[in-house]
Nucleic acid binder design. Structure first.
Lengths: 211, 211, 211, 211
DNA sequence: TAGTAAGCGAGACGGTACGTCACGTCTTAAC
DNA sequence: GTTAAGACGTGACGTACCGTCTCGCTTACTA
């Protein structure tokens, strides 16, 4: 469903040059114009208002060029997401799980409610409810990486001896992160620091090895 | 945005009869056909495949009849939702918070992942990510009631002396219910009894007054 | 392929009212706007430049309204053709075959080379060379009538005793009319009165009963 | 508009791009593949279905190679036409105008209705109705030669003393050939030997010097 | 008990966007 | 310097639905 990128990536193109591999002449200019146009439009007119025609017009590009490399507007938006999320959701490493988790959850709440890339994320999650194939792609190609980075937070706590070695990391993540998404996606309630801090406190009061 | 129903409701029509008010001749037959057609279509072709034209055709109804009483396909689907959810998410009352919560969360997980009405709910939450006005209506007219019933579960625990009187009920609900929605809406991980039971256990180990 | 017209025709609606016949709510306004737009465009930009989108835009009409009643741009153009041709190619009746034929052929030559409706006709004949189905429709629904009127010219001559009763009317028409079309469609040579008069003279010198 | 060919054809170069061909000269292989592909496609999918992309794909050739040497699909098809027409419409020379004309008209009728090259011709005439520039090219570069050869038929009759010296040859050709084209292009009626023979008989009964 | 007005089914209408096709131009690498 | 390949911007295709708007029609209340 999704496309490969950065074909022209100057640094680090250690492409295997597999036999039968042809030079790809994809236009980097068009690729960037499309991704930017899509992001801009999402912010300006909302997900429902984003159209392939609109992206093409704004990017100064033919519709076919979009369809050649992406399968839908969701696919275009996914393309930017990981990059943006990676930079805006940097993993904290402050020396203790408590601080790391508190920092991360605060950051996540802000990301989801304030950042443009957060709006992309919630829109994509919304779309995933309507489209199983897109949901699968989204999880595999984008959320998985995101999630793996979150696991690291907890694993560091285990290594440090702050958390039990037999902790069910995925369940713990659901317990910590789930309430944040729940408020953002379902109830629309605010997700302030008090709320996220309390989640961490509650979590640690059960699992922390050290008082 | 939404509509009121059962205008033809045979029993209990104690209509206010304001001056100049004319009896309404809305067709109950059409109303039911539309709601059923919408639900059927959602299951058969998915949210994105549901269209007003499709509902009208399947229900044997003119499009105008739909637009006369509802504002969108989301509005039609919302109409069924509360009714269905009420009956399928009956509140347990088994004498202890632990059991009530465990039962309820298991039920909720099943509802969200297996029930047709659960599919309607996740579709509507998906749509809410793309449409702020619809999101507001949905929360006010449908989720609010749903949520109020969930609060009762915890309030009963307080009354029974199982939970502290100063418990932040909304935060507690987010902590219990959020992880379930998170898995359903975001990660797609299974949500089995072990997972939901653990959520209750974890929750109570922090808040329970009685060991 | 083609459509029926004048559904709203006030006078002369001696419609058989066959059982099951429903009143049609087709918009006469849209019908006329489309036909006029198509004719105008043909003159302004030529057949190849006429597009369904262009007709729709010029007529202030949705594309679907065109597709609902016609199958292609050729179908739209055919629709005007018979009406126009009927009025611009009035059959002369001057008392002698010689005069009738000379008048008619001069008229035909002018029609084909000068009249807007003549441009429609040659464009449609051109299209018929590329599209067998359209060719069949065109002949059955439009040329047939046209041609039948031409036969009348010769039949009147037979009735008057100016031509032999066993004249092969269709072959005679080909002999008279064919050269005119040939010059217009194939060679592009001018088709002046001297040319058409000579065709009549040549024809009659073989078939005329009366010197 | 049209192109010149056989750049490699100094004197009888019947090569098929033999090994050792110059890569910086026009490829005869490509030229032939393109012309053949175009002819094949015309027969298989009809004029409207022939596309430059289709020709390129079928010929195993880049689109640019077509555009480099021809200006349009009509131009490609014209290229084959004269060659084919020359060989399939050989001028008869049987000693008398009557026999020559009868033979030629029968041949022409068959060519137009049965031969692949005849289908090319009618398609080109059709296209000429939509495109004035192409029409001019077609007449100058292809029909003119064709037509000149037809004049020879009549001039031989004049030389032989069978036709009057002051015969208007072009008008006579229109009278003889026009009806054939008319039936093929316009009415779609069959054009059998009886019809064409009658044309010749009718023509000669007016112009023949010798009874 | 006849008239009348609302709701109904039907579906035409002006639109927007879809996803596809082919256009004619362009760039690249291979020979 | 031509070739096969194919990406590009452009623009039309024909389709699906949108939400609005009449059309008769049926029905049940009012006058």
């Amino acid at each position: 469903m999704n496309s490969s990128h950065r074909l022209d990536d100057p640094a680090g193109d250690q492409d295997g040059d597999r036999p039968g591999h042809r030079a790809d002449r994809r236009s980097e200019r068009a690729r960037r114009a499309i991704l930017n146009a899509a992001d801009d439009l999402l912010v300006e007119v909302g997900y429902a208002g984003v159209t392939i025609e609109g992206i093409a017009a704004r990017a100064g590009v033919g519709k076919q060029t979009i369809y050649r490399w992406w399968s839908s507007k969701a696919d275009v938006l996914m393309d930017n997401f990981s990059t943006d999320a990676r930079s805006e959701l940097a993993l904290p490493d402050l020396g203790s799980v408590r601080e790391d988790l508190m920092t991360y959850l605060r950051q996540l709440a802000l990301f989801l409610t304030e950042a443009p890339a957060g709006a992309v994320l919630t829109a994509l999650i919304g779309q995933a409810q309507h489209d199983r194939a897109m949901a699968a792609t989204f999880r595999d190609a984008h959320l998985a990486e995101h999630r793996e980075r979150e696991r690291v937070l907890l694993r560091r706590g285990i290594v440090r001896g702050e958390l039990r070695a037999d902790l069910d990391v995925d369940a713990a993540l659901a317990e910590l992160i789930g309430p944040v998404y729940y408020r953002v996606l379902v109830t629309g309630e605010p997700v302030g620091p008090a709320f996220t801090d309390a989640l961490v406190t509650s979590f640690l009061s059960n699992r922390a090895l050290t008082a």
